Amino acid sequence: VTTYKLVINGKTLKGETTTKAVDAETAEKAFKQYANDNGVDAVWTYDDATKTFTVTEMV
């Protein structure tokens, strides 16, 4: 189990959160659900070296 981080650069929601998951795909599903629940529709990137997902909402 690995800890993954999500950085949110949204128009109305900004911040960071983490989740523990067995792999990046599982973490991504959890983070996308979190973003969807909070109304963030954005572009996703992932950095495997830092285990960090970044979501940037387009203006």
Rank of each mutant, 00 (worst) to 15 (best):
G39T: 08
T45Q: 08
T26P: 00
V43D: 07
V43F: 10
K20A: 09
A27P: 01
N38R: 13
D48A: 12
D41R: 08
T56S: 07
A42Y: 13
T18W: 14
V7C: 07
N38E: 10
D47C: 08
N38C: 15
F53D: 00
W44E: 00
A21P: 01
L6E: 01
E16D: 06
K14P: 08
V22D: 05
T45K: 07
M58E: 12
A49L: 11
D37P: 07
D47N: 08
V1S: 08
D48Q: 08
T2G: 06
D23G: 02
K32D: 01
M58I: 12
A21K: 01
A27M: 02
A21F: 06
T2C: 13
N38D: 06
G39P: 05
K29Q: 11
T17A: 13
K5D: 02
K51W: 04
D23T: 05
T26D: 07
V22E: 08
E25D: 09
D41W: 10
T2Y: 13
K11G: 15
D47H: 04
Y34L: 07
L6R: 00
Y46M: 00
Q33M: 08
L13R: 03
K29L: 10
G39C: 12
T12P: 07
N9M: 12
K51P: 00
I8D: 02
E57P: 05
V59T: 11
V43I: 12
F53E: 00
N9G: 03
I8K: 00
V7K: 06
A24L: 11
A30W: 13
A35E: 02
T50W: 02
V40M: 11
K5T: 13
Y4H: 01
F53I: 03
E28P: 00
F53M: 01
D47I: 02
G15R: 13
A21Y: 04
A27C: 03
A21G: 03
T19I: 14
Y46I: 00
V55Q: 03
T2L: 10
K32A: 05
E16R: 04
V7P: 01
D41C: 12
V59R: 05
L13G: 13
T56Y: 08
G10P: 03
D48S: 10
T18P: 01
V59L: 10
T3M: 10
T2K: 09
G10V: 15
K11I: 15
Y34S: 03
T12M: 08
K5V: 08
T26G: 06
L6N: 01
N36A: 15
T3D: 06
T45M: 06
Y34R: 02
F53W: 04
K51N: 06
A27W: 01
K32M: 09
N38W: 15
T3W: 06
K5C: 08
M58F: 12
A24N: 04
E57W: 07
T12N: 13
D41S: 10
E57Q: 06
M58Q: 12
K14Y: 08
E57D: 11
D23Q: 02
V40I: 14
K5P: 01
E25P: 08
T3P: 02
A24Q: 12
N9D: 09
K51C: 04
K51A: 04
A21N: 02
N9K: 09
K5M: 06
E25Q: 11
K51G: 03
V7I: 13
T2R: 08
T12V: 13
F31C: 03
V40G: 05
T17S: 09
T19Y: 14
K11V: 15
V1C: 13
T54G: 01
A49Q: 10
T45A: 08
A35D: 02
A42C: 12
E25L: 10
T12D: 12
V55H: 03
D37R: 11
Y4K: 01
V59D: 13
A27F: 02
V1N: 08
D23A: 02
A35T: 12
K32G: 02
K32R: 14
D47A: 02
V55L: 11
V43L: 09
V43S: 07
D37E: 14
E16C: 15
V43W: 08
T2I: 12
K11W: 11
T18Y: 15
A24M: 13
N36M: 15
A42M: 14
K14G: 08
V55C: 14
G10M: 15
